[in-house]
Every structure is written in C-alpha cells, then in structure tokens.
Design a protein around this nucleic acid. Sequence first.
DNA 1: CTCCATTAGTTAGCATGATAAATATATGGG
DNA 2: CCCATATATTTATCATGCTAACTAATGGAG
Lengths: 136, 136
Amino acid sequence: MVEGYADRFDGVDPAKVLGALELMRAGSLLIRELEAYFASRGLSQLRFLTLILIDREPDRTSLTVGEIAERLDVSRPVVTRTMQGLEQAGLIAISANEDDARSKEVSLTRTGQSKLGEVLPGYFAILHRAMSAGEA
Amino acid sequence: MVEGYADRFDGVDPAKVLGALELMRAGSLLIRELEAYFASRGLSQLRFLTLILIDREPDRTSLTVGEIAERLDVSRPVVTRTMQGLEQAGLIAISANEDDARSKEVSLTRTGQSKLGEVLPGYFAILHRAMSAGEA
DNA sequence: CTCCATTAGTTAGCATGATAAATATATGGG
DNA sequence: CCCATATATTTATCATGCTAACTAATGGAG
C-alpha cells in the first residue's frame, strides 16, 4: 500500500517508510507483550522500571519523584500516580527528604526487592526472545 | 546498567536485550513524533490511518467499523469512538448498510480527502527522516 | 415459524500517557 | 526581613488504548 503513495512524494524511499512502519509495529508488539507479562504479576512497565532504577542506583538507596520522572522520561504526574500504587502494594516506601521539605525520597521495601528479583528473569527472557525471533 | 543484571541469567545476551530496549525506545519516539504531528493538524494516528485505509480500499468507497478495527488491529470500541470524532470533524460520513441493519458504512467526505492529501507528505517525510537519521 | 446462539456496534469503566494549574517550600534581591 | 520567582509534587482533566457487558439484528436448528 505504501508504494502507491510514496511514489507521489519527492525524496521518499518506500523501503525506509516501510522500515519505519515495521519499527513502530515491532516496538508496539514488544511493549504490549511486556505489559501483559507485568500485569500478570501485579506490575506494569513503569512500576517495574521504577523498582529497577532505585535498585541499581549507586551509593544511594532512594530517588526523588523528579529524578525518577527524568530518568524514565515520563511526566511527574505519572510518577506520582505510579508511586501511590507501588506504596499501596507495599513495594516501595516514601519518606521525607531532610534537606528539602518539598521533596520525597522513594526507596524499595524488602517486598519490592523480592518482587524485582522474581520478575527480572522473565523480563530479560522476553527481551532476548524478541530479538532472537521476529524482529528484522 | 543492563550488563549488571544480564550476567546473572543464563542464556541472556546483553546485546540482544539492549537491542530490544533500543527497539522499544525508537518505536516509542517515532510514535510520539507522529502523534505530535497529527495533533497539530487536528488528527491522531488512528484517525489518519482510518482515512488512508478507506481511501486506499480497492473497488469500494466505504468500510465497516469491524473491517477498520480488524485491519488496523485495534479494538472495536476504539474505532467507534474515533469514528464519532471524525464524523463531528466532517471528515467521514457514516451510512447504513443496506444488507445488514447492524452494520454501518464509513466513507470519506471531500473534506476528509483534502485533509488526507494535506497531511500525507509530512507523514512520509517524518517516517523517511526517522529511518535516515537516528535509528540503528 | 420460533428460539437461541452469533455478530455488529455501542456504552461503561479501567489503565496509563500527557498538560495545565494548584500547593507547599526554597531562595535571592532589595 | 519580605516579596517575587523558582522548584517539587500533586490534583484535575483530557486523550487513547483495553475488556466486559449491553442492544439490536441476523440466521440456522428444530
């Protein structure tokens, strides 16, 4: 279908257009697969990535809402909402920042650490398989 | 960051994991860029793809809600909602199917055809540029 | 012919992304 | 010291995807 259109525009290479469409498709499918995996374990991609991020932070055991938003490249309100869910699930603890009362520190609970360890192997397995199988 | 984890799981190739992460990242960025482009023209990806789909259908000038859902791989309720918006915007017309009163035929209006022609070059330009520049 | 399972579409409600505006705290110039 | 501005987070609202449940129409078995 693309060729019929692409012919009509200068400087457009149908192969590249198809590549871009394939990229979006493959990316979306992988994201969808991961969301399903996480959902079956009471998580979501963003919840999971938050846990990893705090776990892997060198020299510290907590991050602020703003830091999480920046590093995961999502808006702060989304992080706020996600943290509320994670706290209710007992996977993180939220405490005051001693130096700045505006800020909050988010750290993993033991439960959060366990959950992370429990979910990681499957996560990498899905990523690994995705690149071994379908993708171009 | 990936290596530190991947080492701990058998059969996981960090390069493939990184490739999968890059795939998701590139796909998401491209989708985001297209959504921004369409939003600036009163469309969305799904609205645009619907217009294209009807326009390119051979031998017919309309499609049903179900056909659109199936071909674009989205759920029917999403198509219903999207068609309501497109109809209000005057880009499509919805009429009864003579043979089956449950079904509806969605066709492009002149305005819809113009809008499509107006937006297509920019669309292909974005796809083309995405594959020429950033992607691995 | 009638009844019931199936099909087309819609409505209701949830999740997750965004932006704009509200709230609370910090901080620097006068 | 006080106010204006800036920063950290939250609240409110919107967009767009989903599934489940509802309505209306179809069509085949008996």
